[in-house]
Design a protein around this nucleic acid. Structure first.
Lengths: 233, 233
DNA sequence: TAGATTGTTAATCGATTAACAATC
DNA sequence: TAGATTGTTAATCGATTAACAATC
């Protein structure tokens, strides 16, 4: 028989897929809040996202008991509870690593600012870029990253360098003490287990989309409802 | 008893999750190819991606029989077969809709160009932007989209407008005949079923990352191996 | 041949959905 | 109270993994 008494040391971590859905619930809740609603049922919350009410309740139950039988969920309370649960009830200072086109785009991305993700520093290894000022931030040499990270000013890094240098720069980020990397380079990174990486590979997303479009059209073609749109050159 | 004889009309479409993995296999295969390998086993292909050999074989089997027992897969053949299966053995002309920071970044994104995704037009509803030239392309008014789409020049659109106007512009794209939308606005879009949408919500990704970092650190904290990095202001 | 590796079937695992007693 | 909706258990579904005969 296993020693179950000592289990609680494990941090109960909701599955990745649940965390993703909770982000969506949060957006939906904010939309309902803006419309003036004060309470909401699991069915109402799930409907616009095409998620079943049982799924909604089970996901929320991962983080605690927020609902009131017969009534539903109080929107203000639920938003607060979910933000706390996701850890976004505080500021998250970000660093942009690599100031190419993508890095500049992220500097201006409002989706971060409205969610307490704040870009507070820019690093680049190109001496020609160091010292330039964008959005009120001066580009610093990559060597400065360690100081910023160890002083606790920065926890997450947006890795925006070309694929060729991504692993090398990621190694430097790890060495500097960064524990979370949002990776935009289309290569899988190798990092120690205590470092967290989420890769956003836009060409993977586009390939997914192309496949859906292609298959969808073949499906329609098979039923003879659409002229050929793909494959004709 | 159901009429099984008429089933084949359905297009057998590999599950979304399989298509995502196949994109990763493709990148890995190209890496092995560059290193000079000519054949590869399911174990070798899966290892760098932390995917089990059985999973690799099962995923590939969705698209046909490509392997040779006792030998493995011939890399050149497999790359060709997978590209065909995913529909990326042809050019996919793209339109950028909305020329803000993000739109400009995508114009310069090499990850697209190297995979036969080609941005061939830019549309914006802001008259001040129409007529400007970026990367050799002249910004056109949104009304021109329909002509470009129906002439078959464009199948996929990269939607890069602010959240507030995303649904309105998506409606125009649908009306113009675009069948695939890569949506960068952090709002879920409502579109007819024959239109395919993939949403890339960067703040959802960042929220996932923040959660992992937070939980990872709590885990380490609980075991007393790390000083507090989060929550101190 | 002996060794390696496939494609596929069966077993396992985890996630989604349905159902319902408990509650307001 | 009657109606609504929760949290949770049990049933269903789908995806992952293991195992192995067939093959080179």
């Amino acid at each position: 028989m296993k020693d179950l008494g000592r289990e609680p040391e494990h941090v109960k971590m909701a599955p990745r897929v649940v965390v993703g859905r909770v982000s969506l619930y949060l957006r939906q809740l904010e939309a309902f809040q803006r419309q003036g609603y004060t309470t909401i049922s699991s069915s109402q919350l799930g409907a616009p996202l095409s998620i079943k009410n049982a799924q909604v309740r089970k996901d929320l139950a991962c983080f605690g008991q927020f609902g009131h039988p017969g009534v539903g969920y109080r929107i203000d309370d639920l938003i607060g509870a979910l933000r706390r649960a996701l850890g976004i009830d505080r500021d998250w200072p970000l660093a942009v690593i690599g100031l190419g086109n993508l890095g500049r785009a992220l500097l201006g991305y409002r989706g971060f600012r409205t969610r307490r993700f704040k870009i507070v520093a820019i690093f680049d290894s190109d001496p020609a870029k160091v010292g330039q000022v964008y959005e009120g931030l001066t580009v610093e040499p990559l060597e400065n990253l360690k100081k910023a990270a160890t002083s606790g000013k920065i926890h997450l890094g947006l890795l925006c360098v070309p694929a060729e240098s991504a692993q090398r720069v990621a190694d430097q980020m790890v060495h500097a003490g960064i524990t979370g990397i949002l990776n935009f380079a289309p290569v899988p990174l190798t990092v120690p287990p205590q470092v967290n990486v989420v890769t956003v590979d836009l060409s993977v997303q586009l390939e997914n989309l192309a496949y859906k479009v292609l298959k969808g059209q073949e499906g329609l073609l098979a039923r003879g409802t659409l002229p050929a749109l793909v494959g004709d050159r």
